[in-house]
């Protein structure tokens, strides 16, 4: 049975697509057949982050409308086996995704894949609702910043009331908190919400903490998921995240300021 995971946040620009690309790639690297589905209809971007923008022929909406089949539409990643991308359409028609259509496509994908990763658009409009509706698990991407945390809480409310699992009275969607753009130095100075703060407010299990990192922009510049930059802090943090998603217990890294000096060791901080 395929597992459907939605990557969502409410707020835009917190790292949903970056995280979808990284986690999807990580799952495939771990040997699981994975497809990343871009639900951001109108503002397709996953293809750029994955570096396959010039290979897009058909898209999600074409498949829903029966203008192309999945085999024609799925883009196979050239670097990683077992990894495929279903690009979003650039149509301006907001209602291009129908619940029936999405269900048909996901059901067909579920026959082939171990993991279906749904990259949600920002906001709480129909695209975002469609991305979370069929999910079994959710990765809620949050920045340690007030508006992002508030929007994440809003999305958590949607996950527990507006999903298929909620409507059918099944077990709820398993919710994971992914904290991104984390800056331990600013946390130490009292300028940024800490991991503990965000965990306490949102009260969901933590799946990963991705440090604010130069590697993320470098990765998107070159169309390479940041998880493939294995020497980078962000890449390693995503690798840890994927392992946790697969049920392993991995200690959290990059939570504290590195290279503690002698004086700090004595006085704490």
């Amino acid at each position: 049975m395929a597992k459907i995971i939605v990557v969502t946040s409410g707020k835009g620009g917190v790292g949903k697509t970056t995280s979808s690309a990284a986690i999807g790639t990580g799952l495939a690297l771990a040997g699981h057949k994975t497809v990343i589905v871009d639900f951001d209809i109108g503002l397709r971007n996953l293809d750029l982050i994955m570096g396959c923008e010039r290979r897009v022929v058909y898209d999600f909406v074409n498949v829903i409308n029966g203008e192309a089949n999945l085999k024609q539409t799925l883009i196979k990643d050239k670097r990683v086996d077992n990894l495929f991308i279903l690009p979003a359409s650039q149509t301006r028609d907001k209602d291009a995704l129908t619940k029936d259509g999405v269900e048909r496509v996901l059901t067909e994908l579920a026959k082939e894949f171990d993991f279906i990763l749904c990259d949600s658009p920002a906001g709480i409009e129909s695209g975002a609702m469609m991305a979370l509706y069929f999910a079994d698990e959710a990765v809620v991407v949050t920045n340690p910043e007030v508006s992002s945390v508030r929007d994440s809480d809003r999305i958590l409310g949607m996950l527990s009331s507006k999903s298929r699992r909620a409507e059918q009275g099944l077990d709820g969607i398993k919710e994971h908190l992914l904290l991104t753009r984390y800056n331990p130095e600013r946390v130490q100075k009292g300028e940024m919400l800490s991991v503990e703060d965000v965990k306490e407010i949102l009260a969901i299990e933590l799946i990963g903490v991705i440090p604010e990192s130069q590697a993320v922009l470098n990765a998107s510049n070159s169309g390479q998921p940041v998880i493939m930059d294995k020497d980078s802090d962000a890449g390693q943090a995503y690798l840890d995240t994927v392992q946790r998603l697969l049920g392993e217990t991995v200690p959290f890294r990059f939570l504290t300021v590195e290279k503690k000096g002698f004086i700090k060791r004595i006085f704490g901080g």
Partner: peptide, 14 residues
Amino acid sequence: NTASTAKERLQIIV
């Protein structure tokens, strides 16, 4: 400490 202000505000609004 702006982080603690942020936390308090968030706890109330959430």
